[in-house]
Each structure stands twice: as structure tokens, then as C-alpha cells.
Write a protein that binds this DNA or RNA. Structure first.
Length: 415
DNA sequence: TCTGGGGTCCTAGGACCC
DNA sequence: TCTGGGGTCCTAGGACCC
């Protein structure tokens, strides 16, 4: 009998992914504070600016690395509603970071270089590093563009030094191919692996074993648990619970009474490092959406034409996304964010699945009629949910024409 | 000068059904 | 004076994550 292999799960996190990808193209920015975000602005086209300054020369992508620093836009010049998507370590020294408004960041670090987000480029490198991992360890779960979970358990060498050897191999393979660094945590499950990958950033590896729970995990703040956000953390703190160890010390019964059945039991398990979720290699999307924050707040009546055009465009974009990816959906929803930042959603489930822009627009229009529109709007979004693969939807029986609404059925139920 | 965009999952009440 | 009990779908809001 072979001994049962020990479950080893890795969490791999690319270091400052967007910023590092930008540095591959613009190595002259290395070590400088760089902020990525915003991105509505035409004047950010660096090659265009280069061509304006030196019209005699034909500039290509290969010249990006030669663009002088003065050509790069600075944070100080930014006006608008954008936020920081990510920032280099040099920029973070100034206290700027993800999700911070660019205008606020400009006060902290006006000299930082501002680059618009380039998702096509990030997706390209994302696919590349994931395919490198897949060649070495095939059981991978996507967690967005720059993170994955990897099941090391059955991979040859995955058990050596608790997973450290395989982590090192993957790290090196990614770096050799892309020049990008990542941090890896290896642990008995996803929960602990996720925490472990943060221990040695950047370019670190850390291995967590069962017996490390008390010395390494329990001293950490509860907020380090993936799934405990600002609200839950605040509630925990209000009960005097700051660290994971303090959480582990509470009776599971008390946690259930205080946080509800599901959350209470989960909090207890998490604090004790227990998590049996598998690494899921494939998953179907549940919804697709498009939303946009306006340059200025719009009023439903006064800016009706502008709003209507934006609304239609969002519907067309979602429809395109659905068609391109081969999905149809039947729950159409809208999202409104008002000038006071309050959010309202409305949705409507159609009798049949659709990926048609006009059908989505009509249903979304019905939703809009049910929404309060006194306040000025800051954001408008359109969502299609209850998705189904377009091929599977074709096999479905058509919806019945008439509503089967027979009063007798209500008066005389079958049972 | 506040605060993006694209997602997932959970809860909770009401409708509806058996 | 008494009003079940599940299951599923729909809708709205909210927490959280990348």
C-alpha cells in the first residue's frame, strides 16, 4: 500500500503584476514611483507624443524603452474620477495604493508617473504565466488575472520540502520566460496557502505545515483571512477579537449565535486552519456586466439624451461580450450609483434566454422605470445573469405562449 | 479633489407550488 | 380564534475579492 499523499496546495501571486508588466515595456521607469489607473485619456499615447516631437522618424513599439522620462505624464497633471489600479513599490512608499482616488494620490506623490491600464497586455502575460504553470502542475484554479491556486499533491516532486522545491521550480520557470516575479505559499489547504503567499513578498516562497498554525497564523489579524473584510473585522473587533488566535479561542456555539449558522461555523473552521475546498480547474460564468462612471453626474431628466445613449451602449457591450463568449442569459439587471454614492439595483427575469442587445435594452428599460431617479446619477451599469451556454440553451424547450394561470388550481390544490 | 470595473456568494422576504 | 411546511424562483441589497 502506498501511503496517502499529504495534501499540498499552493497559492501563487504575481508581484505587482500590472506595474511589472509595464516595466517590461518601459524599463526606464525601474525604481521610480509609477501609478497605473485612470485611462480615458488620449494624450497618454506615448508613441503619438514621440511622433509629434520627432516627426521625421517612424516610431514603433520597439522604441518604447527609449522614450525619455519627460514624455511620461505625471500624476500631478491628472484631472478626473479615476482610481489607482496598482502602484510600484517605489510609489507605495508615498502612501499611495490600490483603489485610492488619483486626485488624492496626486497630493501624496505628484511626481509619480501615471500610466493608463492596458488590460490586453496584462491578459497576454496572464495567459503566459498560467500556461507555464500548467506545463508543470496541471491542476490550477484561476483567481483573476494575477493569482492562481495550484494543487501540488499529486505532482511529481510536489511533496519535497513541503512543496518548496516545486514552488521554486515554477517561480524560476515563470521568471525565465517572462522576467516577472511571483510569491508562492504552500500549505495544507487554500485558506492557509493564500495567507502563506503573503509572508515573503516579493519573490518569496513560504511553506506552512499543520504545526505552524499556532506560531505563524494565530498572531495574524483576522483581516488576513480571505473572506473577512472591513465589516466582519469591525464586528469581530467590537467583541474584542483582533487576531486569528483570539478568534480560535471562542466557542463555536458563541460564534454561531453571534454571526449566524454558516458564518459562525466558517469563522471557527478558518481560525483553526481548516478548509476542505478543492482546487477547481473549470467554472462557468454566472453573470456578465458593463458599467461606467460618468465624467460628471447626470440627471435622469435634464441629461436624458446623453444617459439614453450611454445606456444603449452598455447593453450593446454586454450583448457583444455574451455573443463573443457564447453565453445567453435571462435575468437582466441595472445598477445605479447616485451622487451620494448610494447604490440601487433592479432586475427582471425574462421568459427566455437572450444575448440580443435590443432585448437586453428593452428589459433594462423596464428595470429603470422601477428605480428612483430624483438624485443625480454617477454610475450606470447593465448586467445579464442566470447564464447558460448558448449551445445548451438551444436544446431547451420554448417557453409557453400563455401564462398557465388557472384560478381553479389555486382553489383546489392537488394535495 | 473623495471613492473604478468586473465578478461571486449570501441573506431574506414574498410568490408560488405541492 | 387560528392561521403547516417544505422547495424553488424572483428580487434587492450587501459583503467581499481581484
Amino acid at each position: 500500500m502506498q501511503p496517502e499523499p499529504i495534501r499540498r496546495i499552493a497559492h501563487l501571486d504575481m508581484d505587482a503584476f500590472y506595474a511589472s508588466v509595464e516595466l517590461l515595456r518601459y524599463p526606464q521607469l525601474k525604481g521610480l514611483p509609477v501609478v497605473i489607473g485612470g485611462g480615458r485619456r488620449q494624450e497618454d499615447d506615448l508613441l503619438g507624443r514621440l511622433a509629434l516631437a520627432y516627426p521625421a522618424q517612424a516610431w514603433t513599439q520597439d522604441d518604447l524603452a527609449a522614450i525619455p522620462l519627460d514624455f511620461f505624464p505625471r500624476l500631478a497633471a491628472y484631472t478626473g474620477r479615476g482610481v489607482i489600479t496598482t502602484a510600484t513599490y517605489a510609489a507605495r512608499q508615498f502612501g499611495v495604493g490600490s483603489a485610492m482616488g488619483l486626485m488624492k494620490a496626486a497630493k501624496l506623490c505628484p511626481q509619480a508617473i501615471l500610466l493608463p491600464v492596458d488590460f490586453a497586455q496584462y491578459r497576454h502575460y496572464s495567459q503566459r504565466f498560467k500556461s507555464i504553470i500548467a506545463d508543470i502542475a496541471p491542476v490550477i484554479e484561476n483567481r483573476g488575472v494575477d493569482e492562481v491556486y495550484i494543487d501540488f499533491t499529486e505532482v511529481p516532486g510536489g511533496q519535497r520540502e513541503g512543496g518548496r522545491v516545486l514552488a521554486r521550480l515554477i517561480q524560476k520557470a515563470i521568471f525565465d520566460d517572462t522576467g516577472l516575479t511571483c510569491s508562492v505559499g504552500v500549505a495544507p489547504n487554500k485558506l492557509l496557502a493564500k495567507m502563506a503567499s503573503e509572508f515573503n513578498k516579493p519573490h518569496g516562497i513560504s511553506v506552512v505545515l499543520e504545526e505552524d498554525l499556532q506560531p505563524l497564523i494565530w498572531p495574524l489579524a483576522c483581516r488576513k483571512i480571505n473572506g473577512i473584510g472591513p465589516k466582519s473585522d469591525e464586528k469581530l473587533q467590537s467583541h474584542g477579537i483582533r487576531t486569528i488566535g483570539e478568534l480560535a479561542a471562542r466557542e463555536v456555539g458563541w460564534l454561531i449565535a453571534t454571526f449566524g449558522n454558516k458564518t459562525g461555523a466558517w469563522l471557527h473552521d478558518a481560525a483553526w486552519g481548516r478548509d476542505s475546498r478543492p482546487v477547481v480547474t473549470e467554472s462557468a460564468p454566472v453573470s456578465m456586466s458593463r458599467e461606467t462612471t460618468f465624467e460628471r453626474d447626470l440627471h435622469a431628466v435634464r441629461d436624458r439624451a446623453e444617459l439614453g445613449a450611454l445606456f444603449t451602449r452598455l447593453c450593446e457591450q454586454v450583448a457583444q461580450d455574451l455573443q463573443r463568449k457564447g453565453y445567453v442569459g435571462k435575468t437582466i439587471g441595472i445598477k445605479l450609483r447616485f451622487d451620494d454614492f448610494s447604490i440601487v439595483t433592479r432586475d427582471l427575469t425574462l421568459p427566455q434566454y437572450t444575448d440580443d442587445a435590443a432585448a437586453i435594452r428593452a428589459a433594462a428599460g423596464q428595470c429603470l422605470k422601477r428605480a428612483p431617479l430624483a438624485r443625480r446619477l454617477r454610475l450606470l451599469g447593465v448586467r445579464v445573469g442566470s447564464l447558460l451556454g448558448a449551445q445548451e440553451a438551444k436544446l431547451l424547450p420554448p417557453p409557453s405562449e400563455t401564462q398557465p394561470h388557472e384560478p381553479n388550481a389555486l382553489l383546489f390544490p392537488d394535495d
